[in-house]
């Protein structure tokens, strides 16, 4: 190991690090604080930092308002549903490319990646019209399908990079041991790939939960997730800040927790394995 680090240096970088961290985190912190204020305190100048009348009434109101629960449910359905479909379609594809590659596998992978580069706005109109004509606008099925297609390339890529790390020998040993392809997947590959699959699931949930182009454009009420619900707070001024904060805090809390858990894997997923 390197030389001992001087105490002064340690204190300096610690102070700088915490300051930067605090500044970056501050908007979220401020939002959380505001969510515990009365609407009046939330709007007051000078702003109140800690010594205000702490209340959880905003949460109570947000929770009891049926539409919050409804939209939260939509977010959960969307995130889990699209993730599930992604796994069902993506795991076999990733298996195939990692363990039975052909000369075209490389190109296929890059092509899949390139579909992710298509700006959503380029296909918004036909998708919107197709959805309108088939009655998929503002439905769970329609939205799950869109998020599934949008995230499938990332899911396949991530799974592919994880599967590639599993030694081929072990799968061959299973084959010698008499395992069929199905058993090989269930008894050998899946247990070994659990960490990779788990982080893929996490990333996909995060992406689907926060996606705000399709959800805003293709939903109105019945299938609208939290992204769209929060957006509906954009017009009224002032008086709803505390409630907006409470709703926002609830909307981001689960994802923040998931994200913190999966930060390492996130890098790989978001860079298509280009940075590990």
């Amino acid at each position: 190991m390197a030389r001992r680090i001087t105490t002064t240096r340690r204190i300096t970088v610690t102070a700088a690090g915490w300051l930067v961290g605090f500044l970056i985190f501050f908007p979220i912190l401020w939002m959380v604080l505001t969510s515990f204020k009365t609407e009046l305190d939330a709007f007051s100048t000078p702003p109140q930092f800690l010594f205000f009348h702490w209340t959880t009434e905003n949460y109570a109101i947000v929770q009891t308002r049926s539409d919050y629960v409804h939209h939260a449910m939509n977010s959960i359905i969307l995130a889990l549903g699209s993730t599930l479909v992604c796994l069902v379609v993506g795991i076999p594809a990733a298996w195939s490319m990692a363990f039975a590659p052909t000369e075209r596998t490389r190109q296929t992978l890059l092509w899949m990646l390139s579909t992710k580069m298509m700006p959503a706005v380029g296909v918004l109109i036909p998708i919107y019209l197709l959805f309108r004509d088939t009655g998929l606008l503002d439905t769970h099925v329609g939205l799950i399908f869109i998020e599934f297609m949008a995230n499938l390339p990332i899911v396949i890529w991530m799974l592919y990079t994880y599967f590639k790390e599993i030694p081929k020998d072990i799968l061959e040993a299973a084959r010698m041991d008499g395992a069929t392809i199905g058993k090989e997947l269930v008894f050998v590959l899946a247990p070994m790939a659990v960490p990779g699959i788990a982080s893929t699931v996490l990333l996909n949930i995060i992406l689907a939960w926060n996606e705000a182009f399709w959800t805003l454009n293709l939903t109105t009420v019945s299938a609208a997730p939290l992204t769209a619900f929060i957006a509906s707070y954009s017009s009224p001024e002032g008086l709803f800040w505390a409630k907006l904060s409470a709703a926002s805090t609830l909307a981001i809390a689960p994802i923040l927790v998931l994200g913190w858990f999966s930060q390492k894997q996130l890098v790989r997923g978001l860079t298509f394995g280009a940075v590990k």
Partner: peptide, 13 residues
């Protein structure tokens, strides 16, 4: 037939 691999290829789990 059965095979012994160079890397042993044991099932780690």
């Amino acid at each position: 037939l059965s095979m012994v691999f160079q890397s042993y290829a044991l099932y780690p789990h």
